[in-house]
Amino acid sequence: MAGLAAAVLVVIGVASPAAAQRTGDQVRVVLKFVKRAAGAGVRFDPATCAACSPITDANWNADNDRETVIALWIPRMRTLELGFDHGAANVRRVILEGGDVPFNREGNRLTVAMPPVAAEAVTAAEVATHIVEPGMVLRFEHADPARRAGVYAQGLFPAVQRAAANALEFAQREVVRELGLGEWVERNHLGRIQIMGFDTNAPHDHRDAPPHIHMHLRWPDNTGTQIGHYYIGEDGLLSHNVVGVKGSGAPQHRFGRGQPFTTVAPDGRAIYTHRITPEGWLELGRAGAAPCVIRPSGNGGFAAGASVACPGMAPRRIAVADDLAAGVLTVDTDTVREVFRYDRDTGALLSPSAVPVPPPSVFVNDG
């Protein structure tokens, strides 16, 4: 931990690098063409934009039963109309980043109206639901075998590891809630806790393997963020943690079972500590305090669920189910069932996430 902590402290106060973009007046974009049914996909017509060029890397593009994903270099900050042909009749939506862009269809040709793009816009192929709470965001990735790509394109689909990641993501969320970590980092302007799993569809070349989970404190300027990768074996248990520091240039550090890793804030304070136990379970708590213990709820790994036991609190059982066909994520915490409905094409949360404001005559104590 000493070498990693030193690397973290070195980068405190260093400005974050500029967003990645191609030298000159071009930016990289990814468009997702959602299909009506399995079948033909569209193809970019270069005659409609002489200043545009396709990105040919296979992991930047995709064509499966759900969608066609096309990556392009386009002129920066220009209002464009891009043409696509071949499978145009099979397209029902066009996605840029997290939302729809307008398009027109004439016969077997599709014209997409592109807004001016200032910096790279490449996340359209992601299929994840974001659950935002004070000081924390949980990014839940939907593992759809029909979209499998990259490292996960062939062989046994990592269903066990993904189910384990599902339980571990929400178990960590439960610890963050129990210990008040999210509110604390937000109140002290230390950044935001981000809980994540792993993608199985290689969006924008994010190959995300082997299977793992994250829980890191994203620093306000990103540089200095310590990103751990808690790897999950075929048995659904945790094996080890590999940590890198954004923007530091320092080598990654490996933490095996039994070795604790403490996340540091921008002001140098130790915030929370993770420790993979000798059994492959997970301990998580405030730095220097007795931790919560996250263990499988059954006799095997985490694929069947997790049990969260914090000091002085009764254990809580976490069970997660993701219905891809219905677009419904269900999370059971003991007897409380949460239902998150999401857009099956993008993962965007459809369930309400905030209480509507009261009528104007209602007194609201603003503190």
Rank of each mutant, 00 (worst) to 15 (best):
A19T: 14
E234C: 01
P291A: 05
P358W: 01
Y231H: 00
R275W: 08
G99I: 13
G228D: 11
T23G: 11
P46V: 08
A209L: 03
H142F: 03
S239G: 10
G236Y: 00
R105Q: 15
T129P: 14
H204E: 12
F103D: 11
Q172T: 10
V339S: 13
V336S: 09
A202W: 12
F170M: 04
L217V: 12
P251E: 08
D366R: 04
R341Q: 11
I318Y: 00
A143V: 13
R162D: 11
A125V: 08
L156D: 15
A163S: 14
M1H: 14
L9D: 14
V362T: 15
A18Y: 05
E174M: 11
G367H: 10
L4K: 02
F44R: 06
V364N: 15
E178V: 09
R148H: 15
V94A: 07
E67C: 05
V336Y: 02
F255T: 13
T277I: 05
N104H: 14
R344C: 12
R173I: 06
L282V: 13
G182H: 03
A71S: 06
A209S: 13
A38Y: 02
G39Y: 08
A47V: 07
F198L: 00
R109W: 11
V69Y: 00
F157D: 15
V29M: 04
P116Y: 02
V94I: 11
T263R: 03
